[in-house]
Design a binder for these strands. Structure first.
Lengths: 99, 99
DNA sequence: TGCGGATATTATGAAATCGCAAAGTCGCAG
DNA sequence: CTGCGACTTTGCGATTTCATAATATCCGCA
């Protein structure tokens, strides 16, 4: 799906994060190491279908994984490096804001 | 311009990178500490108006700065942390690909 | 088996982006 | 002060996201 030119793969990764709700969701997921969808729903105030779409995007780009246990679905960051990416973004924002 | 909710600011940063050409351009700019637009033009094969548009996006989000000296324009990364963001992205891609 | 809660998928119109082309600006050589 | 090269800005059709609503699926329980 994302496998042809190298820069496209990288751009797709950033596209996965290019939306306020997805950044928010990803930060919630990275903060705890596992979080049920219902909790994200409460924390963000999003409606189920809307959240589900954004989660689908995050999953498609391989940023989060989810697993169903019983009636709920639990999400987690696909890898610790994802949290590192958010941290790096914070550093950039800090430097840009400081200018 | 990007100053209201916190997550929007961060999402905008990622939006700035959510395009293959912009990733490519930013990597060229981070590799050397200063690069003339004409060189980016040669390396990417983009036409001037097209490149200029992408550079405008990168500048708007505060990722690169540029300065005109004589007839040419030189670009540089706005801050070293920008290179760090690209590095963090590489780490995520490596882990996603390895899965 | 049938119900209800928790998520996911599909459909659709509105809004933002992309990519190309025509025209404009800034500096310097002549 | 006129022409030319290096970029930038503007305009617009074509494609891609977003957001909301309607419909569907999965699971544990009565």
């Amino acid at each position: 799906m994302d496998s042809h030119p190298l820069y496209e793969i990288k751009a797709d990764l950033f596209k996965g994060l290019a939306h306020p709700f997805r950044v928010r969701i990803l930060e919630l997921v990275c903060a705890a190491d596992e979080v049920p969808v219902s909790e994200i729903l409460d924390d963000t105030g999003l409606k189920p279908p809307h959240l589900s779409q954004h989660l689908a995007v995050l999953r498609r780009y391989g940023l989060v994984t989810s697993e169903r246990r019983g009636s709920q679905v639990f999400c987690r960051a696909a890898d610790p490096s994802v949290a590192g990416l958010l941290t790096a973004a914070r550093a950039v924002l800090a430097s840009v804001a400081a200018k």
